[in-house]
Simulated assay, not measured.
Amino acid sequence: MSTAARPRSRRTVTAARRHLAGVDRERGANPVELAVMMPLILVLLFASIQIAAVFLARSTALNAAQSGVNAQRSYQAANGAGVDTATQFLNAAGDWLVGWTAPGPSCVVIDDVEVTCTVSGRSLSVIPGVDFAVQQTAHGTVERVTPP
């Protein structure tokens, strides 16, 4: 094999590789892929934000119910102390739990032994038309003086 043929064969092989690799054949494919995938990405993004809003609403309702139980179960607590405390908590908590004012928090003392507080509402809606009901309940025993 002569030395003059060797550089020419390398050029031929390099040109053939470029042709077979199709360097420029997929030009413009990325915008099309993005246009196809973007609705799915947006749906997943808004769904994850909605799920987070539901969990925050549940957490807010549970914390309000626990605050109500703690206030109502204390020694010689006035009637309605739990409801007042839960309402104050919900007023200060923000709007993650909406619609809680219609039924309002309810605290029930059962046989002067147990307190049950329930908070109901709806989660904040990020996606129009999607509405999740939230209800959380907390229980506790009433404090009392026991003889020595």
Results as ranks from 00 to 15, higher is better:
S59Y: 01
I51C: 06
V32C: 04
Y75R: 09
A65W: 00
D84C: 03
A93K: 06
A138Q: 01
R27Q: 10
L62V: 05
V145N: 02
E26P: 00
P39I: 09
T146K: 04
A93F: 05
L124W: 09
R17H: 03
I110K: 13
T137C: 02
A138C: 05
S2E: 01
T118N: 04
D131Q: 15
V130N: 03
N63E: 07
L97Q: 04
P128C: 12
T85R: 15
T146M: 04
P147D: 06
V32D: 11
V109M: 10
I51M: 11
T116R: 12
G129T: 13
V13K: 09
E26G: 11
F132Y: 14
A52K: 02
N70L: 05
R18C: 04
V54N: 02
P103K: 08
L124H: 06
L124Q: 08
S106P: 01
P148Y: 02
G94H: 00
Q88K: 12
S125P: 05
R6S: 03
Q88S: 13
A4P: 01
Q72V: 04
G22C: 02
V98I: 05
L40C: 14
R11C: 01
L44K: 08
V98A: 02
W100H: 08
E114L: 13
S48D: 00
R58N: 13
G82A: 10
T3G: 04
H139N: 13
H139A: 10
R25Q: 10
G80L: 12
E26C: 04
G99E: 06
A71Q: 08
E33R: 12
P39Y: 08
W96S: 07
R18K: 10
V145M: 03
L44Q: 03
L20C: 04
V108L: 13
I110Y: 15
R8F: 03
P147R: 05
A64L: 08
A93Y: 05
I41C: 12
A86P: 14
V119A: 02
L42R: 10
E26R: 10
Q66V: 05
P103C: 08
G129H: 06
R8N: 03
R17W: 08
L40E: 01
A77C: 07
T85D: 06
D84L: 13
V69G: 06
S74T: 09
F89N: 05
N30V: 15
A77P: 09
E33Y: 08
A15T: 12
I49S: 01
M38E: 11
A78K: 09
F55N: 13
D95S: 07
R58Q: 15
S67Q: 10
T85M: 15
Q72D: 04
R10V: 11
G104I: 11
F89V: 05
S106V: 15
L56I: 07
P31M: 09
G121P: 04
E33M: 13
I49A: 14
R144Y: 02
Q136R: 15
L40G: 15
T12E: 10
E143C: 03
R73K: 12
T85I: 08
R10P: 04
N79Q: 09
H19Q: 14
I127R: 01
L56K: 08
V108Y: 06
Y75T: 07
V130L: 15
A86L: 10
R10A: 09
A102D: 11
T101P: 03
R58T: 08
Q88G: 10
A65K: 07
T85K: 15
V130F: 15
G140K: 07
Y75V: 12
P39E: 11
I49P: 00
